[in-house]
């Protein structure tokens, strides 16, 4: 029996989508190893800007209640990991997770991901970096000309959140922000406006 080309194509489409159906129902734990790629992180600067702009994000502090009461990032809500997993989030909520460093928040990231919540970011460096790099950032005494804009951005965000910059003689602490920048997704691209 000979089939027409169109019929063959239809059969091909049917097979691929049937496999998709089987894969997504029976073989969901397929990915060999999970790790957070650069784009799932958010830097302290970007988070600070989002809070300042009152973006609709849900910021979650995963540390203990005592730690939270002592200090937390403005607008954050305290949920420890078991509470977080039980909590019902809308799949569309934009969530930013943070803990002391990166490890607890990374765990929580995958826990939520398995629940089908995908719009999650992990605060790079956690509350430590928020404190040391945003509230009390160190600045070179002489800011190199190419870093002026970055330095101003850090300073103004620091002031906004009630912190203050400290000045150091040696090295350029601003390099911290630059390294982070490269692992960041370029959301505010000037040439690529999303949508029609």
């Amino acid at each position: 029996m000979k089939f027409s080309l169109n019929l063959k194509l239809a059969f091909f489409a049917l097979t691929l989508s049937l496999l998709a159906l089987i894969a997504s129902i029976f073989f969901t734990d397929h990915l060999p190893s999970e790790n957070i790629s650069g784009s799932n992180y958010i830097t302290v600067l970007d988070l600070a800007e989002s809070i300042k702009n009152r973006d609709s994000i849900t910021l979650i502090d995963l540390r203990s209640n005592e730690d939270f009461d002592q200090f937390h990032i403005p607008t954050a809500k305290n949920l420890i990991l078991p509470e977080l997993i039980d909590d019902d989030f809308n799949a569309n909520t934009k969530i930013v997770l943070y803990s002391e460093g990166d490890s607890l928040s990374s765990q929580a990231f995958f826990a939520l991901k398995r629940k089908g919540i995908t719009k999650i970011r992990v605060l790079k460096g956690g509350v430590q970096d928020w404190y040391n790099r945003l509230l009390y950032p160190r600045m070179p005494k002489e800011v190199p000309i190419e870093d002026k804009a970055l330095a101003n951005r850090v300073k103004s965000l620091s002031t906004y959140f009630g912190g203050r910059s400290e000045f150091v003689d040696e090295g350029n602490p601003l390099d911290y922000y630059k390294n982070e920048q490269s692992s960041q997704p370029i959301f505010r691209s000037k040439l690529v406006r999303m949508g029609c």
Partner: peptide, 24 residues
């Protein structure tokens, strides 16, 4: 930002299968 997968809360593969069947 809403997809059928989120809206109907179905496995993505099932939604793909349904839409492919509709198209065929």
């Amino acid at each position: 930002e809403l997809t059928f997968v989120d809206y109907f809360n179905l496995p993505a593969g099932l939604m793909v299968f349904i839409l492919v069947m509709i198209a065929l």
